[in-house]
């Protein structure tokens, strides 16, 4: 068995406060998958992600994590950027290293191995020459790569991305998609990505989860393109 890690949704209903966004969701995600989550605004994409991260409990049903994904700190997350970050004084290195926080417990300083690992991840994403630069001076694409490097420090096997291409021009978006493809192909990193950029993201992803107000579609990307594109 190579596919030991699994994330299973069984009859899950998701929502927050008085709003129900998704009902009766049943699917399982295996290691090595590359899933692109699409849907209109308010269809519950962010809620779906929050439930995987464990920030939001499902209203009904169960989300089961198996194998390596059992621990909470096995997930690398790339959230949407906040306005406060745009003028934040911090060096790239400081930000990438902060990915290790969940492994630190009460230890107040980073270990040597962690710093080396951080450098390794920066090299992987081609930002090692930026490491002493200030985050707010970088371009949007570079900023996303910094945050991606941080997510890789937090978790090696499962990445969750929330609208990573928002605000990027088409060149930088393509670059980011290529990086993700590489990570998925060569390093067997599982990727779950929420996006508005449906057309392009669907071409890169292996599977598609389309959330709608009255149901959902989950299947391979080619199947999705056949059904939804005329």
């Amino acid at each position: 068995m190579t596919n030991q890690s699994e994330l299973c949704f069984s009859h899950v209903t998701l929502g927050y406060e008085s709003t129900v966004t998704t009902t009766n969701l049943t699917l399982s995600i295996h290691s090595g998958d590359y899933i692109c989550v699409v849907g209109e605004n308010g269809s519950g994409k962010s809620t779906f992600i929050k439930s995987i991260l464990g920030i939001l409990k499902p209203l009904q049903g169960e989300i089961i994590r198996k194998g390596e994904w059992k621990q909470n700190n096995s997930i690398g997350y790339l959230p949407q950027q906040t306005p406060a970050q745009r003028d934040f004084p911090a060096s790239v290195q400081e930000i990438v290293c902060s990915g290790f926080l969940n492994q630190m417990g009460f230890r107040p300083f980073y270990k040597k191995q962690e710093k080396e690992k951080a450098l390794e991840n920066m090299i992987k994403l081609g930002i090692e020459n930026l490491r002493n630069r200030c985050y707010r001076e970088l371009s949007g694409g570079q900023q996303q790569r910094v945050l991606l490097a941080r997510a890789l420090c937090a978790a090696q096997k499962l990445l969750i991305l929330d609208e990573p291409t928002t605000g990027l021009d088409s060149n930088s978006s393509d670059e980011l998609y290529n990086i993700l493809n590489n990570l998925n192909d060569k390093e067997q990193i599982t990727i779950i990505m929420v996006t508005h950029d449906t057309e392009r993201a669907v071409q890169y992803a292996k599977q598609v989860l389309h959330l709608k107000h009255n149901g959902y579609f989950f299947g391979s990307s080619s199947e999705y393109q056949k059904n939804f594109k005329k």
């Binding site: 991260l53 920030i55 909470n72 700190n73 997930i75 690398g76 997350y77 790339l78 959230p79 949407q80 906040t82 970050q85 902060s98 990915g99 926080l101 969940n102 945050l147 941080r150 997510a151 937090a154 978790a155 969750i160």
Partner: peptide, 8 residues
Amino acid sequence: DESFAKAT
């Protein structure tokens, strides 16, 4: 980045 910290 509070949401990242929370998620991890």
